[in-house]
Design a binder for these strands. Structure first.
Length: 877
RNA sequence: GCCCGAGUGGCGAAAUAGGUAAACGCAGAGGACUUAAAAUCCUUAGCCGUCACUGGCGUGUGGGUUCGAUUCCCGCCUCGGGCACCA
């Protein structure tokens, strides 16, 4: 390949005096494009021979095409691009794709507001985001691009849905669901954050609706178990969040017989993690939503009171019920159950803190050993019975001020009295199982995934409902089910699909009779649960992915935000396991993402005036508001947002400094996983560094490429630093993923080259090697300027495709070392010695050192600690 | 409330197996170049003391382990994140 040298001229080895990123960057972007430099090489080469290079599949979390790129994207994609470019140079077959998460509510809102069709709005936004991504220098292989709102994409999603339905993994269930009235749709549990909608932050209410669910709980244990494979490769924080979200707890189910059985119900089953305390259970609490809540009191004089209480609790939304000041209340149903361990009658209460969708919606109350039950018992004067005694002073029920929840020995527990409570858990559970009263069980906090959405701009659920045959899938030949295009978008309420005059009219695939087409669409998280698979073969029509595509799996490196820890990342793991079980993916492929890097947020200072609220930076002068002169409040490091008026526009930044500077700053200012504090002076600093490097290279374009090895110590030193830098940067990029230190190392090398160039006259190959190494090592971070310099240094092939510098142990070896001499652990001197110097020799030198002598004279050396190559510590007394 | 993570110069940060604390960069100070400025280059730079140094102090805080602790252990404080009646 021979890029047109309109910027640097390789043959003449000259560079324009001044570096102009706005001219140079687009030039090399075009050259990479023309060379197809970023096309993912297939496993089998065109000549039929296998490509021996290891594959490397890297991707970032794809964006929702809002039409605007923000700094968070720039940070995310810079990190991904560095890794993609570095691994490419390291000799990997890199697949680095990009796509669009293009179904979703904003498109629909835009349709209502601006009267544009969601599709047109989305397609236009994608177009307007692609340019800026290219302008950043992202090395994506666009031949693998996908957009999830396209029928060629979502037809596979509809097939997955149908397969799930056939396997009982997709089902309909009437339940209390999270309803966001602003989005006019339901939400999955993980999409409710602090009682608010994850998308629009409005309060979520509960509604009784029948909806489509995915049985993700079926995979809960596997999702938990397979985290072992991810440990050390995913951030602990994310694994921990998933663990908490899944919330596995071991316990027992215990059945309590009703004292007065109903016609069809004779007992109430509870879930407990404390079967060891069952002898101390003195009442039963059930949820207001429990099917027996209203039945137990039927016909009793308490009926009206209980019904009123149940209705009151049922009407309260989740936010209310989770609030700090929510008062624990209950109502006695009038019914009793029998404690199977001791025959004691226990009153059954409705309690407003018992959750219907965890365990069985009923709990045995042991007030002596559970804080909630304790408070409840005190409030309603229910008996408290101690059945676990700690070591030391025994507990007396009437004197308790709080429940005792620690370990101890059982008392008042029949044959189990005297046992350690941990042993008793197992023993009592086994005993109850033997009696047919219960057994060991596991409960998860994770709930099934609610996937139906009452919206238009989503993937249609490919089902019809026949009055005769119930829900039936659309026959495969009729897929994909497309969205109707003749839609009028009106604000508020009903899904346009439900109100469309004809779209929902369909035929039952079994009897051919009229059937109602499902008007719900799928949750947007459905598309992102498998897009990484589709990236490998986005054009393949025969299924989700083809055989060649499979060779790229799994994703070796995924880069994104930790805000998806319990949503997207759990769903994707669920899908991978499911598809692997079905044989769509190899049976050994159980996890989608080998390594995960979660980048931190981008923050910036904000200013606020008492009168004019948040101010743009240019509205603040000398700490005062330019509008009214009042002192502006300086708020440190707030999340970048329009509200705070502290947003930095990526493209404005690129126009001012160039993409390389923007990338470099994002990578240099902080380690990737911590917050990035935006700071204009820091950006200037990065820009200046690139300028320094440019001028440095400019001075030495015509150095000899070959010749004598280092002939003096200055050259040997430079060579040593060069190779140490190769080692450091390689480790930082390929193992540690610490780009800030990689850049610092290259800066040090650049400073060393500069020092050498200023003091030495040798036009040596060593100098050339060091300069070329610096340019290559920086290439993944600042690809354009490095590509320019690389060609100016006389290379005709692309830096982006050049081979990563090879580290030489011999060249990096130190001849002399600085040994720190400590006396009693305090540094007193430094000695420069030959690398191979022995302890005895160093000790001798140390004792002769004036500074050391000052602290050792007249004292005896009791002990000497010698750390080879590092330090000598003399312990004196 | 419970569970994680983090606290290092004026600022962002570094220290990769317990071994020179502050690499690299920003801001600052001084100087060179310039009629001047910008840009650039050089020097300096934790705090205190000192003519000076090879002195003292110093990684949120109080203890501990160690010849030696930013690093390991225990208590406390502050900040950030996650979960929050999960029985």
């Amino acid at each position: 390949m021979n890029p047109s040298p309109s910027c640097s001229d390789a043959s003449k080895s000259t560079l324009p005096e001044k570096y102009d990123p706005l001219k140079v960057e687009p030039h090399w972007q075009a050259a990479w494009q023309a060379a197809g430099a970023f096309r993912a090489p297939p496993a089998v080469k065109p000549d039929g021979q296998p490509d021996p290079r290891p594959k490397f599949f890297i991707m970032e979390m794809f964006p929702y095409p809002s039409g605007r790129l923000h700094m968070g994207h720039v940070r995310n994609y810079s990190i991904g691009d560095v890794l993609a470019r570095a691994f490419r140079m390291k000799g990997h077959r890199v697949l680095y794709p990009m796509g669009w998460d293009s179904f979703g509510l904003p498109a629909e809102n835009a349709a209502i507001k601006a009267k544009v069709h969601p599709r047109d709005w989305t397609v236009k936004n994608i177009e307007s985001m692609k340019g800026p991504l290219g302008r950043l220098g992202q090395s994506y292989d666009w031949t693998h691009e996908l957009s999830t709102c396209e029928p060629e994409y979502f037809i596979h999603e509809q097939r997955i849905f149908i397969e799930m339905w056939k396997r009982g993994l997709a089902y309909r269930k009437g339940a209390l669901v999270n309803w966001c009235s602003s989005c006019a749709t339901v939400l999955a549990n993980e999409q409710v954050e602090d009682g608010l909608c994850w998308r629009c932050q409005s309060v979520v209410h509960q509604r009784e609706l029948t909806q489509w669910f995915f049985r993700i709980t079926e995979y809960a244990q596997q999702i938990l178990d397979d985290m072992e494979q991810l440990r050390g490769k995913w951030p602990d924080k994310v694994l921990h969040m998933q663990e908490n979200w899944i919330g596995r707890s071991e316990g027992a189910r215990i059945r309590f017989a009703l004292q007065t059985p109903l016609a069809d119900v004779t007992e109430i089953e509870v879930f407990t993690t404390r079967p060891d305390t069952v002898f101390g259970a003195t009442f039963l609490s059930i949820a207001a939503e429990h099917p027996l809540a209203l039945r137990l009191c039927a016909g009793l004089e308490r009926e009206a009171e209980v019904t009123a209480f149940v209705n009151k609790v049922r009407a309260e939304d989740k936010t209310r019920r989770g609030a700090d000041d929510y008062v624990k209340e209950g109502s006695f149903t009038g019914a009793y159950v029998i404690n199977p361990t001791n025959g004691r009658p226990m009153p059954v209460y409705i309690a407003n803190f018992v959750l219907m969708d965890y365990g069985t919606g009923a709990v045995m109350a042991v007030p002596a050993h559970d804080q909630r039950d304790f408070e409840f018992a005190r409030k309603y004067n229910l008996p408290i019975e101690v059945v676990i005694q700690p070591e030391g002073a025994p507990l007396v029920a009437s004197e308790l001020t709080a429940a005792y929840t620690e370990r101890g020995r059982l008392v008042n527990s029949g044959d189990f009295s005297g046992q350690d409570n941990e042993d008793a858990k197992k023993n009592i559970t086994a005993w109850l199982a033997e009696k047919g009263q219960g057994g060991q069980t596991v409960s998860f906090r994770l709930r099934d995934w609610l996937v139906s959405r009452q919206r238009y701009w989503g993937c249609p659920i490919p089902m019809v409902e026949c009055p005769e045959h119930g829900y039936q899938p659309i026959p495969d030949a009729e897929l994909p089910v497309l969205l109707p295009t003749d839609i009028e978008f009106v604000p508020g309420g009903q899904s346009p699909l439900a109100t469309h005059p004809t779209w929902k009219q369909a035929q039952c695939p079994i009897c051919g009779g009229p059937a109602r087409r499902e008007t719900d669409t799928m949750d947007g998280f459905m598309e992102s649960s498998w897009y990484f698979l589709r990236y490998t073969s986005p054009q393949y029509a025969g299924g989700i992915l083809d055989e060649a595509g499979k060779t790229f799996l799994p994703v070796d490196q995924y880069v994104g935000g930790s805000e998806h820890a319990t949503k997207h990342l759990i769903y994707s793991r669920f899908f991978t396991k499911m598809l692997s079980d079905w044989g769509v993916l190899p049976s050994t492929l159980r996890e989608p993402f080998v390594r995960l890097l979660t980048q931190g947020m981008v923050l910036k200072d904000a200013y606020r005036c008492a009168e004019h609220d948040y101010l743009y930076p240019e509205e603040v002068q000398d700490g005062s508001c330019v509008k009214c002169g009042q002192t502006a409040q300086h708020l440190r490091q707030m999340k970048m947002s329009k509200t705070f008026r502290n947003v930095v526009e990526p493209m404005a930044l690129v126009e001012k400094y160039g993409a390389d500077t923007a990338r470099l700053f994002c990578l240099f200012a902080a380690p990737p996983d911590s917050v990035l504090e935006w700071n204009e002076a820091g950006v200037e600093g990065c820009s200046r560094f690139l300028g320094r490097l440019y001028r440095l290279v400019q001075r030495f374009l015509a150095l000899p490429t070959e010749g004598t090895p280092p002939t003096d110590s200055a050259q040997a030193d430079l060579r040593r630093i060069t190779h140490k830098t190769i080692r450091r940067v390689s480790a930082d990029l390929f193992e540690r993923q610490q780009f800030n230190t990689a850049i610092a190392a290259i800066m040090e090398l650049s400073n060393a080259i500069s020092d050498f160039a200023n003091t030495q006259t040798a036009q040596s190959p060593v100098l050339r090697e060091s300069i070329e190494t610096a340019v290559q090592l920086l290439g993944p971070m600042a690809p354009h300027i490095c590509e320019e310099l690389w060609h100016a240094l006389g290379h005709s092939e692309l830096l982006a495709l050049s081979a990563w510098p090879v580290f030489s142990e011999a060249a990096a070896r130190d001849e002399q070392l600085t040994i720190v001499v400590q006396v009693n652990g305090k540094k007193r001197a430094e000695l420069v010695v030959a690398a191979e110097a022995e302890e005895a020799h160093i000790t001798q030198l140390a004792l002769a050192d004036a500074a050391v002598k000052q602290f050792t004279d007249g004292k005896t050396i009791k002990k000497a600690i010698f750390v080879k190559g590092r330090l000598l510590n003399l312990v004196v007394a």
